[in-house]
Structure formats: structure tokens, C-alpha cells
Design a protein around this nucleic acid. Structure first.
Lengths: 86, 86
DNA sequence: CACCATTTGTTCGTATGTATG
DNA sequence: GCATACATACGAACAAATGGT
């Protein structure tokens, strides 16, 4: 759905970050679970890859998710120390 | 370091172009070598991407460097027609 | 091992809107 | 109005890692 308001004062990449944060908080994307790929998010929200990545970088910087190149992006598990080797 | 004087008469993008021209002339960035990315320049000089690109466009127009989208910007090699190839 | 599809990462190019002097 | 500067958005190409066949 087009939950992104391109005309709003809040930048689309911030709106997307809000939406994803909420999905994680609501448990729609459980800990340890893979997030939708950037391509899927691009299609779902009608945003450019670059904009998607900008939003995802926020979540990553916040420590909400971790990225695994070639595999995807995963919601961190509470109680899971980071740097578990692999 | 903040070698850019925002208060000076000379526009920041012109100052940056000067600095980069000098680095190339001094051999700090040898021919065929990749230049710092726009992001790195942005961080180093504290300027916006647009301003960086404005300075880089000058160098490109002067034929000092060539750009390879997705790869970077390269100092031209004297005696090399065009294209850093690889 | 080679090949390929998927996915994230990085980088450059272009354009628009806003703000300032 | 113009030049400058910044933030944002979209487009495109290349790179590297992963996993399946």
C-alpha cells in the first residue's frame, strides 16, 4: 500500500523508517526473522532503492536490524549479543 | 580538515577544485588512481554532495579526471587517450 | 568447481525544493 | 533574478557475498 506521503513535510525515507520500526515493534517481523528485501520494499512502497537503503541504514544504525550481504536484513534478537562470529 | 573557508570570497566549490587540482599536480593522487569518493570528500571537507560534485565537474570538464559510474573517478593518465580501462 | 539468481553495498548522475546573500 | 549551498529523491551501473543447481 502506498503509505508514503510524498507531499508530506516528513521525508519519505523517514516515513519508511517509521513504518518498519513499527512493524518490528508490533512483532509483525519477529526477532531473528528476515526483513523484506530492498527490492520488495521498493515495489511495496514505490520508492527508489536508494531511498529504501537510506531508511534501512537508519534502522541499522539504531541497532534494530543487522545486515548480511547476500542473505538479507534480519531483526535483532533481544538477548542476542552481536558479533556472534557467524 | 577544514581547508575550506566558508567566509572567503572564493566559493567553496572553487576552493575544493583548487585543492584537488593541487593533489593531482603534486602526485598525491597518481595517474590512473582512483580519487576519493564523493562521500569521502563530503566528510573530509564538510561540504554537501552537490558542492563536491560541482567541484568535480570542473576537473572533469578540464579533462583532469574521468568518471566511471559505479566505480569512481580516476585521474587521467598522460599518454592515455581515455578510459582507465583497468 | 562453475554458473547463476538473489541480495546487500558502493558509487556516480541527475533533478527538484528550499534557504540565503 | 542569480549564484551558492544543502537535503532529498530517483536512476543507473558496478561490486561482493551468499546459496542453490
Amino acid at each position: 500500500m502506498g503509505q508514503i506521503d510524498h507531499e508530506g513535510v516528513r521525508a519519505p525515507y523517514l516515513q519508511l523508517a517509521d513504518i518498519l520500526r513499527k512493524r518490528i515493534a508490533d512483532g509483525e517481523i519477529p526477532p531473528g526473522r528476515r526483513m523484506p528485501s530492498q527490492l520488495e520494499l521498493e515495489q511495496e512502497f514505490g520508492l527508489a532503492r536508494n531511498t529504501i537503503k537510506k531508511a534501512l541504514k537508519l534502522l541499522k544504525d539504531e541497532g534494530l536490524v543487522v545486515t548480511a550481504p547476500g542473505r538479507g536484513m534480519f531483526v535483532i534478537e533481544p538477548g542476542d549479543a552481536e558479533g556472534p562470529a557467524e
